[in-house]
Amino acid sequence: MKLRRTRLYVPGNNPHLIENVGLYDADVVILDLEDSVPIPQKFDARILVKYALQHVEFGKSEKWVRINGIDTPYWKRDLEEVLPFCEVVNLPKVEIYDDVEKVAKHMEKIEKKWRIEERGIVPIIETVKGLINARDIAKHSRVIALAWGGEDLTADIGIPRKKALILDHVRAEIVFAAKAWDKQALDTVYSDIRDMDGLFEYAQRARYMGFDGIGVIHPNQVETVHRAFRPTEDEIQKAREIIEAAREAEKKGKGVISLNGRMIDKPVVERARKILAFAEVD
């Protein structure tokens, strides 16, 4: 299982911030061509990002690019420049399945031309329309995870984000939509970069809501989030016992896994694997 506990957003027009991205140990680095890049810099930024993907050391971080939305004139050009060099496309403001399909078709052309493997897409749900279609969007074969954006979504509903009472419902929808298709669910960012206690609580809450990670906007947030996503010793111990029982059953050719006299179903084994992956042990 690919860990995506942290995805660090870095503005795609700022070489000084980009050059050290590999040092921060984020599971994912997202070079952003969308909101953090002003319109007059879109051209320069996509070329800068193309070079960064090829020349900057990303360490263990997965290389993503957030392209501009399909409601802009930029998204195709973004893909043409960066797709051959990134691993995943982060697609903002997705509202329907066909939005993903449209982008996937253009990606396919570029992938054929460059003779490269198929890249994944992580749609960002940022509108009410996107939210009610999230279950449909998540089923697209290119989609590897589902993310959402709090600021735009609460604005679309017409409520202030900080006082919004509907966000846990939104989060649950995102998690259900993603998990129904066996995709990862990714929570939005915690924007107070000085409040580490608040960040820890936020990230741990995201984990127990079913998310696989959250967005981060500052390198200092990475370690705290990884700690929050680390299972407890008790969870790790139980997961180890379950995996051991599953191995034993397999070795003895038993179809049924049991532990301490209780039957263990497949989803429980899968959850144990996930816990050990989060614990970064096997």
């Binding site: 070489p15 050059e19 879109k42 051209f43 320069d44 070329i47 800068l48 193309k50 070079y51 960064a52 090829q54 020349h55 900057v56 004139p73 930029y74 050009r77």
Partner: peptide, 22 residues
């Protein structure tokens, strides 16, 4: 600027000089 940054900015400027837009 590092070498890759100089190359990226040079490419952007040259493509604009040749008339590319957006």
């Amino acid at each position: 600027a590092l070498e890759w940054v100089l190359r990226a900015r040079m490419e952007a400027a040259m493509r604009k000089y040749r008339g590319e837009k957006e």
